[in-house]
Amino acid sequence: MAIWRYDGTFTGFLTLCATLVTQGEEPEKIVSRENNQEDLFTSVIFVESDEARGEKMLAAIAARLSPESCRLLLTAFLSETEGVELLLWRYLSFGRTVGANCDRYPAHPAVAPIHRLARAVGREAHSTMGIVRFQETTGGQWYATVEPAYHVLELIAPHFAARCGEMNWLIHDRRRDLAVAWNKAEWRLTTFDLRGVPPLSAGEEAWASLWRSYFASVAIPERTNRRLQQQQLPKRFRKYLTELA
């Protein structure tokens, strides 16, 4: 058994899986970064990311397991949790033996962690869709900042592309220095490390202020329940919220 390394992308990971399958190998560990601490006697095998092989692998998973399994794999992968790759590989291996029935074993040790991670990431993506706050910049672009716990940008991009197709928008993940940008035709994931906020359009503050007024008025004073509000809207979600900033 060896340590296997890839470039950290989902395509890279799929390529690695394809390699493991063809060579009939069982990895001891799968890592995405070079690590000097590894002991000298274990060999590290690097697999170059290959778009075509990755796609083929994904198609094979969709056929052999199910399209739902593909979605689960990607979603759990985006948790970026330490060691998630090996968990995904185990899920995949188990799936190769039971086929389309794979997700009917939600309590199986190869399946349960993937379901749990995918659920957590899915929830984070759903919450993030709600708390994105676009601000109109002087250039007529719409800019938003988020700091999600997981790497959800590509999960939320299609939602905003469908919804705000006529806006040029950019959602900045400040925790990862990444952004997803839409140019009215397609969305793209890019590195992005803007600090501060770009200059905002003249009308922006007026709308934000009306929104704050609305937000303050809609709460029923006799039912004030800060604890419940806190529970639903933890601190990490509040940072970029117009109404709570």
Partner: peptide
């Protein structure tokens, strides 16, 4: 989709 939570939770 919930976009926020008011002071009454």
């Amino acid at each position: 989709i919930c976009h926020s939570w008011s002071a009454d939770g």
